[in-house]
Design a protein around this nucleic acid. Structure first.
Lengths: 191, 191
DNA sequence: TACTTTTGTGACTGATTAGTCAGTTTATTT
DNA sequence: AAATAAACTGACTAATCAGTCACAAAAGTA
């Protein structure tokens, strides 16, 4: 980045346009020119804010992940029990997936694209610790017993992710029922 | 395809070379020329077997999926109970993931790349019915009760996939233990 | 106002590559 | 052996696009 930290409106517009276009087409079929056009800036402007197209996609990825991580963990510690804390994370996962279909599509598509660098993934990972924290705490208080903490947290996160994905594509009517059955399934497994 | 259905050795060589190169670099950074070179055929030969680079990647994807689907369901009905049938699928999923890291990496990376067409995905889906069949049968015999069959099957498959992915990257020593804990978790959930 | 600095611009370029096609080699048939 | 068909080849081309850079506009300063 060449320009001061201040989040210029142009930078914001470029990121928004990128999210839209990277979802509609793949990275390689989205020219920087088309992004600039969608964002109503000159073709050179993009490169004032991002050194390369790759850096742009990495920034966008990190931003989406951070936003999601912050959303799911907000308010988690207001719940008194492990079960409620975990349910909080699950419910907010589903809710975020429903509210942000485009960001989800983008993250899903690009996380395994080879474009997101190891460094970006690590930076994103540092912010994704809600499940880990909750399970670790529950083990301390005796509310949960797991042998391989790492694997179980991974499995729970992955389960939440996949079920969130599934539910978010369903009718509003059936969501509550599906959500309860899905949580009940994994919760029973943990006991 | 211009040439008879017969699986020519050249076709095989092109698919093998593609798998290797598509894993090392992304689709767009893998030139058809480099694939032809790796496969020891002329650059034109690739287009005798596949109309385009896109068709090639779709064929490769379908082949990998089919091979996996066949592997996990082989022998499943030799087990007498739902639990053993499900464990069979889970164990074979993990085993296949361990044995075919490259194919897994390829499928993971390309399934959400936007390159695999809806038609290819549907064709692949038709072959992925092991979990569905087993759960449906168990509901008939009363061994299982689920409300949303579709979602539960989806969740189980996704769980197997993610845990398989996790375990296959671990040490040989800890695999058995992790595998048992992971299966136990989801199995308890189903009861 | 006049001068300096920051920010924004878009025509242009150098490099890359999917796919073609005219021709060669190999296999099959008569 | 000759003729025909099938399989294969690689030099070539037409198109694309990330990133540059010389300049313009806007904002800041004195």
């Amino acid at each position: 980045m060449k320009i001061s930290e201040k989040q210029s409106e142009k930078r914001r517009a470029i990121l928004d346009a990128s999210l839209k276009l990277f979802c509609e087409k793949c990275f390689q079929d989205t020219s920087t020119a088309s992004i600039s056009q969608e964002a109503n800036v000159g073709t050179g402007t993009l490169f004032c804010y991002f050194d390369s197209k790759e850096e742009l996609v990495n920034e966008l990825y990190l931003e989406c992940k951070s936003e999601f991580a912050e959303y799911i963990e907000t308010g988690v510690w207001e719940h008194p029990t492990f079960k409620l804390q975990l349910k909080h994370i699950f419910d907010r996962t589903v809710q975020w997936y429903i509210d942000n279909p485009r960001k989800i599509k983008f993250m899903l598509q690009y996380s395994s694209s080879g474009l997101i660098t190891k460094v970006t993934k690590e930076r994103a990972m540092l912010r994704m610790n809600a499940v880990n924290d909750v399970v670790k705490k529950a083990m301390e208080t005796g509310e949960a017993t797991v042998q391989s903490l790492e694997m179980v947290c991974y499995a729970i996160s992955a389960y939440f992710h996949q079920v969130g994905l599934y539910i978010s594509e369903k009718d509003t009517k059936s969501i509550k029922k599906l959500q309860d059955e899905a949580f009940s399934l994994i919760w029973k497994g943990l006991n």
